[in-house]
């Protein structure tokens, strides 16, 4: 365990980090260069964000921050606005009120170069969304070449390197349709990492997977968290939250109902709604 991130001063102590996980990947080195300084400066600052679809309010006055190197799990019942909230972070969804700042750049600002901002924010989707007409290698290199302007050789080196780290080197020449769901999602994570993002967003990354494939994807995410990546993860995987989250945000009906350290959240959630949700999700 050489690459455990040092939590920022305002981040809670990651007390419950069991060291018993299968960590084969770590022997091959970290997924990302370990960040030396996790100083607690906010990487994502969400400030009083409200959003409406027509007259229906999907987000109400959401405020939270994610510090550098912090892993924040966002959970809540379906329709609570959690996916919408993280899609606001890289401006995939517009919002009407409030402001979001990513690494010092305002998201809702005409002067902001959104494609550039988005290229620094990795995103992993529920349904993988690999580009089906491109080989795995091309999936990994396309945006590096066209957005970051890397040379094909550099892009391929970076892409294949990450593909090896997610354990799929043998599949570089294949197409997404030839891989299992779990493998596709690992490629999708590698594709996002190839852009050298400062923060990674996960939108229910395991919800579309067959149960036996959830583990392999979570393993990669755990590894990434331990390498110090700043992560905002929408998931129902409370096991993952317990393992690596620094904080847990609970949302319901578009509001952030609870924003607590992991131990507080699992120990004694303050709001009845969070208690109710936890009792349902943990009982099976």
């Amino acid at each position: 365990m050489t690459s455990t991130p040092i939590p920022g001063p305002d981040a809670p102590t990651p007390a419950g980090r069991e060291a018993t996980l299968p960590d084969d990947g770590l022997q091959q080195g970290p997924l990302i260069p370990p960040r030396t300084a996790t100083t607690g400066e906010p990487m994502i600052a969400i400030n009083a964000v409200s959003k409406w679809y027509g007259s229906f309010q999907v987000l109400t006055d959401c405020t939270t921050t994610v510090s550098k190197g912090e892993v924040v799990v966002v959970c809540g019942p379906s329709g609570s606005g959690k996916s919408t909230l993280i899609k606001c972070v890289n401006a995939l969804e517009p919002f009407q009120e409030g402001q979001i700042t990513v690494d010092g750049t305002k998201v809702k600002d005409r002067a902001t170069n959104l494609p550039k901002l988005r290229s620094r924010v990795g995103m992993v989707f529920q349904h993988f969304e690999l580009f089906p007409h491109l080989s795995i290698t091309d999936n990994l290199t396309l945006a590096q070449r066209k957005v970051l302007g890397r040379s094909p050789a550099d892009a391929e080196k970076r892409g294949l390197d990450l593909l090896a780290r997610v354990g799929l080197s043998d599949h570089a020449k294949k197409y997404p349709g030839q891989l299992s769901g779990g493998q596709q999602q690992r490629v999708a994570i590698a594709r996002a990492l190839a852009m050298d993002p400062v923060v990674m967003l996960f939108d229910e990354p395991t919800s579309a997977l067959d149960p036996e494939m959830v583990g392999e994807v979570l393993d990669v995410m755990v590894e990434l968290a331990r390498d110090g990546m700043t992560m905002m993860v929408v998931t129902h995987e409370m096991g993952f939250a317990r393992k690596v989250a620094d904080r847990v945000i609970f949302m319901d009906r578009g509001e952030i109902v609870e924003d607590a350290t992991k131990s507080d959240f699992f120990g004694q959630p303050r709001s009845p709604r969070a208690q109710h949700f936890l009792s349902k999700i943990l009982s099976h």
Partner: peptide, 15 residues
């Protein structure tokens, strides 16, 4: 096409 394809392209930083 799945709506996510457009989102994925956009999220990668494509114009």
């Amino acid at each position: 096409l799945p709506r996510g394809q457009r989102l994925a392209g956009t999220a990668m930083g494509f114009t």
